[in-house]
Design a protein around this nucleic acid. Sequence first.
DNA 1: AGTTTTATTCTGTCCGGTCAAATTTTTATT
DNA 2: AATAAAAATTTGACCGGACAGAATAAAACT
Lengths: 198, 198
Amino acid sequence: MNNRAEERRKQVLRATLQAICDKGFSAVTLQDIADYADVSKGVISYYFKNKEDVFYHLLEWMTDRIFQSEYAAIQKESNAIDKMRAYVNAAFKNPEDNRIFYRVYLEFLAQVNQNERFREVNNTFYKNCWFIGSEIIQKGKSEGIFTNVEIESGSHMIRALIDGCLLQWLMRDDETLHSYYRDNCYETIITYLNNKKS
Amino acid sequence: MNNRAEERRKQVLRATLQAICDKGFSAVTLQDIADYADVSKGVISYYFKNKEDVFYHLLEWMTDRIFQSEYAAIQKESNAIDKMRAYVNAAFKNPEDNRIFYRVYLEFLAQVNQNERFREVNNTFYKNCWFIGSEIIQKGKSEGIFTNVEIESGSHMIRALIDGCLLQWLMRDDETLHSYYRDNCYETIITYLNNKKS
DNA sequence: AGTTTTATTCTGTCCGGTCAAATTTTTATT
DNA sequence: AATAAAAATTTGACCGGACAGAATAAAACT
């Protein structure tokens, strides 16, 4: 069935994610992916054009999952402050899985300069992130807060801080820092959004 | 002479920097480095233990240069606000060269999980960055400003925002955005540091 | 001449992608 | 339902090419 193909593809992508996390982007071979997925090498070529194609679809799948999860989180809340909290929480949720995700995402980021298709996927992801930020700021403005923040640049700065915090957290191999960065990230953003111009 | 050796090493490192920027970390071969440096492959083996050793020394050299340049910049200024401005300016100075630098630095960051020595170099770099942030916040406190910011977490957030902005700037291939990110990064940090707790 | 430095060649390893054969699944026929 | 035929999927051996590092040769310097 068509279903089988879809299942296999997912299986290969999940295997690739784990393989990259363990061995690093450039060290992963087709054989590694096949081993992690418990299939033979030929299966990968059967369902994907080539290795680059596997990576491309993995990046697409990952960034889409991150966005969907973050967007769903803010939609559950009704006011701007809660939405902001939910946004940061979503970015930092699930420490163990998240670490794998962002570790691999970072490897992709490094590849973006060498690969036009990766760049396009990432640009879409950025636009989605900024969209979330814009929605929150706009909601805040409609509530009479966040009055001194520009929507566009504000949404850029929000994502910059989230990414910067995630990066630092990723680089410091200490699980206790997870909530530290999550909470400080949130507090810092709120302070920035709430600023009263002097 | 010893001098000649030092010169050759620098030459190889500079070539490696350029090669990684053009071709990507994992694609760079010893032959590439030799070609960029206008020497033969043997030279590299003569001055470095192996390819990984070249990369290690390059990372060390790069992160040290970034720190030295940023630290020198804040020392030229006398008050906290000016220091902060100088810090951000230093991080964003020299768009073209900087792009190469940070592009390659990003590739190293992605490798950090696979390489203990890289991780150590980067940890040192982070500590240096946080040190700069701490100095600025402390100076501010001694001037009676930045009163509501903790020194440690504040220095973490400052670097997180700088890195996040640099990352976004790097990913968006538009030279006009350089001053946009530099200025917004600075404004956002100052807003955060100056916050009046309600 | 002897030593250091540079250039070239060699060698063993590994990898991505292919493909023909084997296996499994689906469809058609009786 | 049983069987046969066809289609889809899976396998792993294989090939050509690329690379790191070693070995060797040549040149430059002292």
